[in-house]
Design a protein around this nucleic acid. Structure first.
Lengths: 208, 208
DNA sequence: TAGTACCGAGCGATTGATCGGTCGGTACCG
DNA sequence: CGGTACCGACCGATCAATCGCTCGGTACTA
């Protein structure tokens, strides 16, 4: 992949996925605590301390611990889904190109925002009531985008996998898995990693 | 894949991966609670109740809540690693066959024992001290098995991926991801799923 | 009898959240 | 202009409930 082409795609990603996700000091503190200890393993006092506030000071901003988690999960899924829709549903664009774009969004998101991606995934079971329902619906929508692309690609002979649905799921899991291990100081930048994953995921879907 | 051949491989798996994992009533109860609520989101009273014991009755068998988790994670990783080593290090066996075997073990393990696999993965951050160190070492060993197979396969021209390490990681994540969604009453048996994943993972690694 | 498998009651510590308050800033009024 | 009222952004102290775990005990079995 020549360097110029990488830069070209890089600029497309900037418009689909933000460079950063402003969380505010309470949510940022909570995110770090949740990533390290889990939602239930994190106390309100830990979050407040990490945010440089007292407990009641923190309750000025959020009415409950659960609201903090819900809020984090929401902004994460909103960010991911918005970018994913843009990538997957680009009009008059060949299916392979849309597939590549979606994979890039997914990998970039999980690398660039690995902490919130990891917490959002691992704390689904701590979400209660409507928050959980909303979250699962968002995940299902995300998965459906990839499902449709691979099925479309198969119908057009672009993808050769005999198992489009399973391949889609495996690809999703591979991209989600990035949030577990990615470190900014590691060997690859998020953008480099996204290109690597495009190759691997194309292969997994049976692209020629 | 003809049915007879599937059965042949099925019988190999029996010798590598057990049909069941006896946990005892305390660990079984804890596993169900941890899967639903997380380690920290599960109280001792919940576990004891689910096991049909009082709290002190439960403490007769395990000295702490953490010991229960550690014990679950240990039996899970031991089971997975034992079977994985057998599959990956079979002497005088072509690399592609060993790769297939390892993928089967990984998928079967995560499908057949999806609850304990899911808890073991999602509660790494709740493991303390030596238990965590041991666990991470086991995970690294597991990953190294697959890394070596793919690298060997690339050296022999069996795999064509330009990114052996990344492909290995993506494949691991895809197999681990099975524990998130697999349901026994779903469309595929664990054995069928294992074969499907062999196809997809071969493709991901760039097998011809 | 000793060992095993439990138990009810209780402990000190911690939890998520609240209460009553202060402080500094801004707006309004006479 | 000075005084008053109000607000947002916090706070120390506290609450009721729950937490992980223990203690002293009982019942059963070989």
């Amino acid at each position: 992949m020549p360097c110029e082409q990488l830069r070209k795609w890089g600029s497309c990603q900037v418009s689909e996925l933000p460079e950063s996700m402003p969380l505010g000091k309470v949510r940022q503190a909570a995110l770090e605590c949740f990533a390290a200890n889990g939602f239930h393993g994190t106390s309100i006092r830990q979050i407040a301390g990490a945010a440089g506030l007292s407990v009641p000071g923190m309750y000025h901003y959020y009415t409950s611990k659960h609201e903090i988690l819900d809020s984090l999960c929401e902004v994460a899924m909103e960010t991911l889904l918005t970018a994913s829709r843009t990538a997957a549903e680009r009009p008059d664009t060949p299916v392979l190109e849309r597939f590549d774009s979606l994979i890039r969004v997914m990998v970039l998101f999980h690398a660039r925002f690995s902490a919130i991606a990891f917490v959002t995934l691992s704390e689904i079971r701590s979400l209660q009531g409507e928050a959980r329902v909303r979250h699962i619906a968002a995940r299902n929508e995300q998965q459906a985008l990839l499902n449709r692309l691979i099925e479309e690609g198969c119908a057009e002979g672009v993808f050769g996998t005999a198992h489009p649905r399973h391949a889609a799921r495996a690809i999703t899991a591979a991209c989600l898995g990035v949030s577990r291990w990615f470190r900014p100081e590691g060997q690859n930048t998020p953008e480099e990693l996204a290109e690597i994953y495009v190759d691997i995921c194309r292969a997994a879907a049976g692209a020629a």
